[in-house]
Design a protein around this nucleic acid. Structure first.
Lengths: 152, 152
DNA sequence: CATGATAGTCAATATAATTGACTATATGGC
DNA sequence: GCCATATAGTCAATTATATTGACTATCATG
């Protein structure tokens, strides 16, 4: 790999590879525990649901995929025992998605793997720079939102 | 009013969404110019080749996909007029991939879109924090490399 | 000049995402 | 209350992308 700091590697490429560090670590930890049947975006969904239940429609928007794709993804995760779906009694169009026990176990492993990376990272560069990085990432996300057709 | 979020959004999620800002902006700019037939990882390949030619094997390693997938991706990009392939005369197993004129034009648009985001970002958070963010991302990438089971 | 490693292809298959057409529920104007 | 419209999600078909396995060609080494 080019260890030349002379030119600046494009930020999108850095983001891509940085994200891979988390993805690979999480997948490895999950596979270790027997959770080796989680499809690509499944990590995102499980990670999001670890913070609490969510309506499918929210998952759709966060993933930025078609609702059909999100539906299929959730189908797969339900089929493999990670998620439950239940109709929201307040609005019976709406599906509320939650983690099963298996899903919770997978989420825990995933979170532990993430926190291990986080800790290693903090030891490497310090908490201050990580805060700055978070700020930069949040700004990027805002920039993306402002330039979107859905922001009206 | 300290607007610190009650919970910290996981870094991988931030990375995902931040990257999307670039991806969406680049795709929009390219589509505007008539370059609307670039497959998913094509942006990465074109962006990488904008810095100079590269052997296919390097693209394979950087993308972290199977060589077949990378081959198909390059196939598609050659077919659509973005890339040229030529056999390396020094090592005739090796394919050197370069941008065509159309590919160069697309790369220029893509880079302009990236730099527009970069500029907006810098105006928003300042150069200092961006340097810190780059440092953090580089550290994450290193962590990923060190935790890898050999280089495939 | 045999052996093994590297670079890439071909064919088949699997996985994932999209589009288009549809059902069911809810909301707001009148 | 009732109709029009919007929202939430499904079903089916297709396209796009990636993977695995088996193979060819070239190169490097002893």
């Amino acid at each position: 790999m080019p260890d030349e700091p002379a030119i600046q590697i494009p930020l999108p490429a850095l983001l891509r590879h940085a994200r891979h560090t988390y993805g690979a670590a999480m997948r490895a930890a999950l596979a270790e525990g027997g959770y080796d049947d989680i499809p690509g975006n499944g990590l995102y969904v499980i990670g999001a649901l670890a913070l609490g239940e969510a309506p499918l429609s929210q998952i759709i928007r966060e993933l930025r995929v078609s609702k059909q794709a999100a539906g299929q993804l959730v189908d797969a995760l339900v089929l493999r025992g990670y998620l439950d779906r239940q109709v929201d009694p307040a609005d019976r169009r709406r599906l509320t998605v939650t983690l099963t026990e298996r899903g919770r176990a997978a989420a825990d492993i995933q979170i532990a793997a993430r926190m291990a990376i986080d800790a290693e990272l903090a030891a490497w560069v310090g908490a201050e720079k990580i805060r700055h990085a978070r700020e930069v990432l949040a700004a990027l996300i805002d920039i993306g939102r402002s330039g979107e057709p859905g922001s009206d």
